[in-house]
């Protein structure tokens, strides 16, 4: 424990028994990729729905030698990312970074960085609703049974109904995936643009849902397929515009309204990626 950590609290806030309990849940989750493992989620000093699941995972795996990056909507400087980063700087005295390749642990809400993740990195997703079948079946007892029986017909029917009604699958984020041909899994509300990055990633991907008290995982180099149909293959979002700051044409773009007469610009949602491209251009 370093001298800088918060007085009166254990290293990284959680007590060691709780961390061990969470690490056991993580190990189980890694052993059964895509399966939601219930865990004794603790009450955290940040509100439920604001990343308590991700924070508990990060707190359980982080050590003094780690370098932490926290992003929200792809950016390191959105308010909640700032708040979570300072929480760990305070309670774990850990070194933080905004550079994707410098980080050993990346906690994220709603994005996967544009820079490819590497061997040995861990990405921790904050998850609001871990159950991909929830909006088709509200009952938890029912959905657990459906996963156990690998009964995913209702999901395919939902996607098919989208095609019948809209001519395409009308799911733009939190787009369901199938992990290692077994569990259908919610990738958390990342845009479907990011789904392909989950497949065969060299990084360990951990998912924490604090309020719903579930942890799940994708071990490195695991097969992750976005659900689709042969005649309606999975596609990612494309923009006609390029990033107004760095000129990128291959990154996820945020739209910014510049006036009230329809003026708008598009910029990279991944602020680190954008800044790096600007630096390298000079």
């Amino acid at each position: 424990m370093t001298a800088e950590t918060m007085q009166g609290y254990n290293y990284a806030y959680l007590d060691e028994q709780t961390k061990a309990m969470i690490r056991r849940a993580i190990l189980k989750a890694v052993a059964i990729p895509g399966h939601q493992v219930p865990f004794g989620s603790r009450e955290m000093p940040l509100p439920y729905g604001w990343g308590t699941g991700g924070i508990q995972i990060t707190a359980s795996i982080i050590g003094p030698l780690d370098v932490l990056k926290v992003i929200d909507q792809g950016s390191d400087d959105t308010t909640n990312a700032v708040s979570i980063r300072s929480f760990f700087a305070r309670t774990a005295g850990v070194k933080t970074t905004t550079a994707t390749e410098e980080a050993t642990v990346i906690q994220t809400r709603h994005r996967i960085p544009e820079a490819p993740l590497t061997d040995g990195q861990i990405i921790v997703y904050q998850v609001p609703i871990p159950e991909p079948l929830r909006f088709m079946e509200p009952s938890e007892s029912e959905t657990r049974t459906m996963h156990a029986l690998e009964e995913y017909g209702v999901m395919h029917v939902k996607l098919y109904e989208d095609i019948a009604e809209h001519g395409r699958i009308a799911k733009s984020y939190d787009y369901p995936v199938r992990v290692q041909s077994r569990y259908v899994m919610a990738p958390s509300p990342i845009p479907k643009f990011d789904n392909p990055k989950m497949h065969d990633s060299p990084a360990l991907q951990l998912f924490g849902a604090g309020r719903e008290k579930r942890i799940y995982a994708i071990p490195p180099h695991t097969r992750v397929e976005s659900l689709d149909f042969e005649d309606h293959p999975f596609e990612i979002q494309k923009w006609d515009e390029a990033c107004a700051i760095c000129g990128a044409r291959d990154s996820f773009l945020d739209e910014i309204l510049t006036d009230d007469r329809g003026g708008r610009m598009f910029v990279c949602s991944d602020s680190d990626h954008c800044a790096r491209r600007v630096r390298e251009d000079c």
């Binding site: 729905g49 604001w50 929200d72 733009s172 643009f193 996820f252 949602s269």
Partner: peptide, 19 residues
């Protein structure tokens, strides 16, 4: 917590829906 998390930025999800 969950009701009020809607205050957090959702630029990325909303952008996905806009597209």
């Amino acid at each position: 917590g969950f009701v009020q998390h809607l205050k957090l930025p959702h630029y990325v999800d909303f952008q996905s829906e806009l597209v």
